[in-house]
Simulated assay, not measured.
Amino acid sequence: MDIQAREDARRWLAEDGVAQVGHDEWTDGEAPDHRLTANEVAHNWAGPAFTDERLDAPGQLRLAFGLLDLLDDYWVTCEILFAHQGPDGPLPTEVLWNGYRRRLEAPQVSEAVTYSLWVDWFEDRSTSATAFAEVLGHDMDQLTTDAPDTLLRRARRVLECSGPVPWQTKQATYRFATRLPALHLALFKGLLSSYHDFYGDLQPDAALALLAELDLPVNTEHLKELRTVLTAGHSNHYRSPHAWDSALRTHL
Rank of each mutant, 00 (worst) to 15 (best):
Ile3His: 15
Val18Phe: 07
His23Ala: 11
Asp24His: 04
Pro32His: 04
Asp33Arg: 00
His34Tyr: 09
Ala38Cys: 02
Glu40Tyr: 02
His43Phe: 09
His43Ala: 12
Ala46Asp: 07
Thr51His: 13
Thr51Val: 05
Glu53Pro: 00
Glu53His: 06
Arg54His: 08
Leu61Cys: 01
Leu61Lys: 00
Phe65Leu: 02
Leu68Tyr: 02
Asp69Ala: 11
Leu70Lys: 03
Asp73Leu: 05
Asp73Cys: 10
Tyr74Gln: 10
Thr77Ser: 13
His84Cys: 04
Gln85Asp: 08
Leu91Val: 12
Leu91Trp: 00
Glu94Leu: 00
Asn98Ala: 07
Leu104Glu: 11
Glu105Met: 14
Ser110His: 13
Glu111His: 11
Ala112Thr: 06
Ala112Gly: 13
Val113Trp: 10
Leu117Phe: 05
Asp124Ala: 13
Asp124Leu: 07
Arg125Phe: 05
Glu134Phe: 10
Gly137Glu: 01
Gly137Leu: 00
Met140Asp: 14
Met140Tyr: 03
Met140Lys: 09
Thr144Val: 12
Thr144Ile: 03
Thr145Gln: 09
Ala147Val: 07
Asp149Thr: 15
Thr150His: 01
Ala155Pro: 09
Cys161Gln: 12
Ser162Met: 06
Gly163Ser: 10
Val165Glu: 05
Gln168Ser: 06
Lys170Glu: 03
Gln171Thr: 03
Ala177Arg: 06
Leu180Val: 00
Pro181Val: 12
Gly190Leu: 11
Tyr195Pro: 09
Asp197Trp: 04
Tyr199Gln: 09
Leu202Val: 01
Leu202Asp: 10
Gln203Thr: 10
Ala206Lys: 07
Asp215Gln: 12
Glu221Ile: 06
His222Ser: 12
His222Tyr: 13
Leu226Glu: 08
Thr228Gly: 08
Leu230Asn: 15
Gly233Met: 11
Gly233Ser: 10
Thr250Leu: 15
